[in-house]
Nucleic acid binder design. Structure first.
Lengths: 159, 159
DNA sequence: AATTTTGGACAGCCAGGTTGTCTATTTGAG
DNA sequence: CTCAAATAGACAACCTGGCTGTCCAAAATT
């Protein structure tokens, strides 16, 4: 029964939110309470070369001002440090701290874990198939994951 | 090659964004320039019984204040009308206007169209499989699609 | 009749984007 | 070598779309 296209969109969003929300909860449980997936991804971008605000902005498809704000948050939380670039005095070089590295590792582990849970639910083949289809559909589209204010939601504490 | 769980999350988000962004563009092209999928979904909720702010809030898992804001937007754009409920003078009854109905139909058509495009890209079977898997994984989780500020993005006008 | 619940509105706050403006520095053209 | 253009970053002001808190009027319940 071919459902509507809107349903399909909702399912995709639901899938992402489920993963992201659970990851947020897990991260919080491990002591990274003030962090959401966006920060995780930003950190990853920084680690892989986007070591200044302008470049980070380009990578994440947001303005450099927004990128600077994100960096400020990461810095205040102790995940990165900023220091003047010795060769270009306009730049502030961004470096991921030890805490940042650790958080990144934990984050990746959590996501991998979630993926595995899904595999036990529907079989590894189904998850792979899902990924393959999506990859094929999206091609090389870069996904910007900006301003998901909703990632910060309560997540329904089991009060 | 089993990629990381984070990739999977990004793919899901990317899939949703692709659909949502394209739908926004299409809607705009058809004269609904000030509308994003959230409004579409809110309208749908209103149509199916959430005919007052408090109820709409419950349906969309947001506060009644937020729901009221959304309604105010929809009203100012002419998609709904508010009129006092004759039987309960606390309530403002919300009604979808003709324009609202039309927009809803167009929106659904657009999403269906996008889905069909995907089917021609990867085959109807793959899309169905993807849906089946996601449905299985998500179960009866209700997806809240609040505050996607990012749905409003430029979408890279082809200047 | 009095209390509790509910619907709605208003104010103020926050996050995370945006544009616009400005300075310092580097780069590149002539 | 000099001067113009591009780039990095910061600051301010604004917008959207959530949130909480407070408050009032109208049900609903006791």
């Amino acid at each position: 029964m071919s459902r509507s296209g809107a349903d399909l969109a909702l399912l995709l969003l639901g899938g992402f939110r489920t993963l992201a929300d659970r990851a947020t909860v897990e991260l919080a449980a491990r002591g990274y309470e003030d962090i959401r997936p966006v920060h995780d991804f930003a950190l990853q971008a920084i680690l892989t070369g986007a070591d200044n605000a302008s470049e980070l902005g380009r990578r994440m498809s947001v303005t450099k001002q927004s990128a600077a704000k994100t960096i400020a948050v990461l810095e205040s939380r102790g995940y990165v440090e900023r220091r003047p670039d010795p060769t270009d005095r306009r730049r502030m070089h961004i470096e991921v701290t030890d805490r940042g590295h650790t958080m990144l590792r934990e984050g990746a582990a959590i996501f991998d874990d979630l993926r595995q849970q899904w595999e036990t639910q529907v079989g590894a083949g189904a998850v792979e198939q899902l990924e393959r289809t999506l990859r094929q559909l999206l091609g090389d589209t870069t996904t910007r994951l900006d301003t998901p204010g909703w990632l910060v939601q309560d997540l329904g504490g089991e009060s």
